[in-house]
Structures are given as C-alpha cells and as structure tokens.
Write a protein that binds this DNA or RNA. Structure first.
Lengths: 106, 106
DNA sequence: TTAGCACATTCGAATATGCTAATATTTAAA
DNA sequence: TTTAAATATTAGCATATTCGAATGTGCTAA
C-alpha cells in the first residue's frame, strides 16, 4: 500500500541519521560551502567528509556546483532545516523532561 | 562542542529510519492504539512490532499506558508528525523533480 | 490455581554502516 | 607536460541493525 512511501521516507531519515551528516547540513544552513570549508568547519577528515557528501548527494539532499578546482555544496531542499529544528525542539523537551523527572525522583 | 547535540539528534533520526517504525508513528497520529491494533494496522508480526515499540519507547518517542492486559501506545511528542510531514513533502518534490528530469531527458 | 491471551525478551544469521588508509581523478598553474 | 591542490573512490575491518523463532512474563477469568 503506502509501504513504498514509508521505505523512501525511512531512506531519507537513514541519511539524516548520522551526526556528521547532520553537522554538514547545519553548516549549509546559510548557504553553500566547498568541501574543504566543510571539512574544517566540522573537523572531519577529507576522505570521510567526501564519503558523507557523496551519500548526501546521492540521496538528493544536497546539490553541487563546480567552481574551478573547488566543488560547492548546498542544500537541495532548505525546508529540511525546519524538520531538523522540530526534532531538536523535541530533543530539548526530552532533556527538560528528564531533568524534571530526575528532580522528582530525588 | 555541539557534537553531543548532533549525536543525540542522529539517534532520533536513526529511530525514525525504519519503514515499520514510521508506519507505527503514522498510525498513532490520531491517538493511542494498543499493540494488537498496531500490529494489524501495519501488518507486522507480534514479536517484531513489539521490538519496534520497545525501541520507540526507549527513545522516548512514544509513551505507554496499561489497561488490563492491553498496553496502549501514543506519541510522546505529537509535533514529531510535523517533522515527518516536512520530510514527506521533500520526498514528493524529489519525485516530482525526477519526473521532470525524466521528461527532459527524453 | 490454572488456562489463555497480550505483550516482551533473547538469540543468531544475514545484511548494512562507518571508519581509516591507500589510491585515483580532476583542475589550475608553472 | 609536470606538479600540486581539491576532491573522489576503493578495500577491508569493526560495529550495528533487522528479522523470525523460541521462550518468558503479566494479567484476567474461570
């Protein structure tokens, strides 16, 4: 039925389910950056960031543009940021909830 | 620095990165359901849905309430639905984009 | 107390993922 | 055309995930 949709949705989530890729997405929030800029911002080694960028590009979450010997990456769908924000808000609430719980437990 | 946030965020995404769990979340959109209701809605066998529910509960994405021999699950943070919707919108755009591209390629 | 649902847990095999190190490709400039 | 910088790709290992089968636990009704 909708199974296919859930699978594709899960694929996107799987792509987002990595701290380095989330950091890359966050770094692209305000516009494009090339690979070495991203690598130094997120402190990820060259091969590894390239692998993550390849995955993000394959899943059509980022798009690229070449400028000389540099390749610039940007978010293909900037509204993705909003989804990330919602999840981080939930995360904040979860953490706040734990604190309240911890206090109550004492 | 923020690395910890990205890791926790990734944990949530990882929890969402499974088609069955997404279907369960979707099934809880309009309110709580017990395990067998969820199992029949999503056509997932008993052991397996229980495993997925355990994961969702551990990650504090759903919460539970017992009523006799039944256990009811609901979304702990219903705003999670909104994040899912955004991602599905992006998915739609991606698919639409591919179609346009396919046409252009012809 | 026992029988029988409703649900959870454990185990093992198959598969997927992330990382590092090494190597390759592309481009620009000398 | 050689060299160096920017980026990509590959190989291989370690770790994680998913699933079904089997088994365990909690609740209710008789």
């Amino acid at each position: 039925m909708d199974k296919k949709i859930y699978e594709m949705h899960a694929e996107i989530c799987k792509t987002l389910a990595n701290p380095k890729r989330l950091e890359i997405i966050d770094a692209l929030r305000d516009g494009e950056k090339n690979v070495s800029e991203l690598a130094s911002t997120a402190k990820i080694n060259q091969a590894n960031i390239s692998q993550h960028l390849t995955i993000l590009r394959q899943k059509n979450i980022v798009s690229t543009r070449r400028d000389g010997s540099h390749i610039y990456y940007k978010l293909a769908y900037p509204e993705m940021i909003k989804a990330c924000e919602i999840i981080r808000d939930v995360l904040q609430k979860q953490l706040a909830g734990n604190t309240r719980l911890s206090k109550r437990v004492k």
